[in-house]
Amino acid sequence: MASRSIVVVSGGLSQPSSTRILADRLTEATVADLAARGVDTVVEVVELRGLAHDVVDMTLTGYARPDLAAAQSALAGADGVIAVSPVYAASYAGLFKSFVDVLAADTLDGTPVLLGATGGTVRHSLALDHALRPLFAYLHADVVPTSVFAATDDWADAGTDQVKPLPARIRRAAAELAQRVAAREPVTRTGLYDAVPSFEDLLGGS
Rank of each mutant, 00 (worst) to 15 (best):
T118M: 06
G159K: 14
D161G: 15
G38W: 08
E28G: 12
G119T: 04
A156I: 11
A178K: 06
A89C: 08
G120C: 11
A89G: 06
V8R: 01
L51R: 04
D24Y: 04
E185R: 10
A78D: 08
R133T: 04
T118N: 06
A105H: 05
D54L: 07
R180H: 07
D142P: 00
A89I: 07
T118F: 00
R189Q: 14
A151M: 10
E28T: 15
A117R: 01
A23Y: 03
V163D: 15
A89E: 10
V144C: 13
F96V: 06
D40L: 05
E176V: 04
I170N: 06
D129T: 10
L103G: 02
A141M: 06
L108S: 00
T188H: 13
A174V: 11
T121L: 01
P16T: 12
R123M: 03
A168G: 15
I82C: 07
G77N: 02
G116D: 05
V181M: 13
H124R: 07
A35G: 14
S5P: 00
V181S: 10
A52S: 12
A89S: 13
E44M: 04
K164P: 00
P134M: 09
A137E: 10
L192W: 08
V31E: 12
P167N: 14
G116I: 07
A69I: 04
S14C: 03
I82K: 03
F99Y: 14
L126T: 05
G116W: 00
W155Y: 14
S18R: 07
E28Y: 08
Q162P: 13
A104C: 09
V81N: 05
L48D: 03
D109C: 10
H124F: 08
G159D: 15
L108G: 12
A168L: 13
S10R: 03
A195F: 12
A151D: 14
G120T: 09
A104I: 00
K97R: 13
L103P: 00
P197T: 14
D54C: 05
L114F: 09
F136L: 02
F149M: 13
A174G: 11
E44L: 05
F136P: 07
L192T: 15
T121W: 02
V43F: 11
A90K: 02
H124N: 12
F199C: 03
L48F: 05
L48P: 00
A64R: 04
G80H: 08
R171I: 00
G11C: 11
Y92V: 13
D109K: 11
A182T: 13
S17K: 14
L202G: 14
A90T: 03
T107A: 12
F149C: 09
G94E: 01
R65H: 01
Y138I: 07
T111S: 02
A83V: 09
L203Q: 15
V56M: 08
T19E: 04
R189L: 10
S91V: 09
L26R: 00
A70Y: 00
T61G: 01
M58I: 01
V122F: 06
V196L: 13
E185K: 15
A71E: 05
F96W: 14
F99C: 08
G116E: 08
T59A: 06
T59C: 01
R37T: 03
F199V: 12
T107H: 02
S206W: 13
E185H: 12
S14V: 03
V122G: 07
V81W: 02
A70I: 01
Y92T: 00
V42K: 12
D201W: 10
R171Y: 06
F149Y: 12
S198L: 12
G159I: 12
